[in-house]
């Protein structure tokens, strides 16, 4: 079937199998590998992206269902090269270790802060409760989101130096 949607502000048209899961569409068709896959049963949240205005588990949504809609992924979190305070917060507060859960966590965090700019730690915990992190024990994720709440609205260039030092081992 034909699918037209907007991802991170760019419109895409593709022909897909109706059974294709959104997470695989994003990763395999569009090469947006920032969103991850971690389970078969919709429990882990590594795959969280926004569908229109709300975070969803993209392993539990068919790409077909996003026809005519907007999808936002971690790759769309920074605006014009400026990191979102949530991204800076995760670095400033050691909110990630292996980084596998991080994109999903950040997408949920941004959504939370848009609706509730000054959440309590308990509210942050509740918001991310459908997402598993195996590395941080969650504490520093909570601190990261609270850091971002305190720095939202700033242009925010504390924390990470913004330099992209990735070593692209093996990337095609």
């Amino acid at each position: 079937m034909k699918l037209t949607l907007t991802v991170n502000g760019t419109e895409y048209a593709r022909t897909i199998e109706p059974r294709l899961l959104l997470i695989h569409f994003l990763r395999d068709e569009l090469g947006l590998t920032g969103s991850h896959w971690g389970c078969d049963t919709s429990n882990c949240g590594a795959c969280v992206v926004w569908l229109d205005e709300t975070p969803v588990k993209s392993c539990t949504v068919l790409a077909a269902m996003t026809d005519g809609r907007r999808v936002t992924t971690v790759e769309g979190l920074a605006r014009n090269g400026v990191l979102d305070p949530v991204q800076e917060g995760f670095s400033a507060c050691h909110g990630l270790q292996c980084g596998f859960c991080t994109p999903g966590m950040m997408m949920t965090a941004r959504w939370l802060l848009d609706r509730n700019p000054n959440p309590t730690a308990a509210e942050v915990r509740e918001a991310i409760s459908g997402q598993i992190c195996r590395c941080t024990g969650y504490e520093n994720i909570v601190r990261s989101v609270l850091w971002a709440a305190g720095n939202d609205g700033n242009d925010g260039n504390e924390g990470n130096d913004g330099n992209d030092g990735s070593d692209d081992d093996g990337r095609d």
């Binding site: 975070p55 949920t108 509740e126 409760s129 459908g130």
Partner: peptide, 9 residues
């Protein structure tokens, strides 16, 4: 019921 992200959809 479930979690906030599942509840969104």
């Amino acid at each position: 019921i479930a979690d906030p992200i599942v509840r969104n959809w």
